[in-house]
Amino acid sequence: MTDTTEDTPKKKKAMSMTAEAAAADERGSQDAGFVQSKHAGHHWSGEAPMFIYAVWYLAFLYIPVMFLPLFSFNDSIYVAFPLKGFTLQWYGDMVDNPALLRALENSVKVGFGVAMASTFLGMFAAKAMTRYYMPGKGPITSFIMLPLVIPGIVLGIALLVISNTMGMSLSLWTIAAAHTLIGVPFAMLVMVSRLEGFDRNLEEASLDLGEGVVQTFLRITLPLAWPGILASVLLTFTISFDEFILAFFLAGNEVTLPIYIWSQLRFPNRLPMVLSLGACVLVFSFFIVTFSEVMRRRGVGPQGGAAI
């Protein structure tokens, strides 16, 4: 792998078919002999290997999950080629399945609560982090980010153990608490990059013009931060909606959708239904997350929002 910027003249002849040469070419190298070799073919001969790799990588990311929607329309109980024919039967199975609908309802409830709680907590933490001079900011940030690097199983059983010790029975509340724990760091990251994206002088100007802290928040911070808030709500909702590892330990009688899916994996004859359900969940998550990503990176630039 090699970099591309200008090249030393002495090496150029030898490298004329490579990316480096193409890039140097693009920038209008001063080496006259080299410039003459410029044409479109050279450009692609350099960029192509990396581009092909990138496309291959995207395929690696996307194609595996594409099989779920593909086979969800396949008129066969087995997930195998060749495809047998088109059917919507498995989607129909989903619709009149009360347990599934119940799980869906639970997931939405938990997700909504988690989205609100995480975004609220993440926003205030982000505001404190970006707007105030505080000693110990670095360690506190690491502390809030900790749930991202603690293995999920550890958090799950730790919360299970504490609920048990405190005599709390497992319910949607315990799942929501766990999801809030992992939602907060993401919400804070999204909000920090959003708040850093606009000048803190704007808030000071509002204070200076006679608006108190609350009014300034409502009239300046909120309108300017709303793409970030929306992104955070959608993102934390999806995190909760799709989360399995923690929910598995903390679910009581009421289950969420991923746990329901897990429970159905034992029954081979329900596999097609699970496929169609999975396809729905994937498509739904995909659109919410894409929208949320567009929101949070808007106006912040590729670098600002890139820290996960």
Binding site: Y62, L68, D242, F244, W262, S285, E293
Partner: peptide, 21 residues
């Protein structure tokens, strides 16, 4: 960047399940 990030947010369970399939 969005193309890379989006799959990460979608259901972990389903992505693993896809590999099983």
């Amino acid at each position: 960047l969005i193309l890379i990030t989006v799959p990460f947010w979608t259901s972990y369970l389903l992505r693993v399940f896809a590999w099983k399939v």
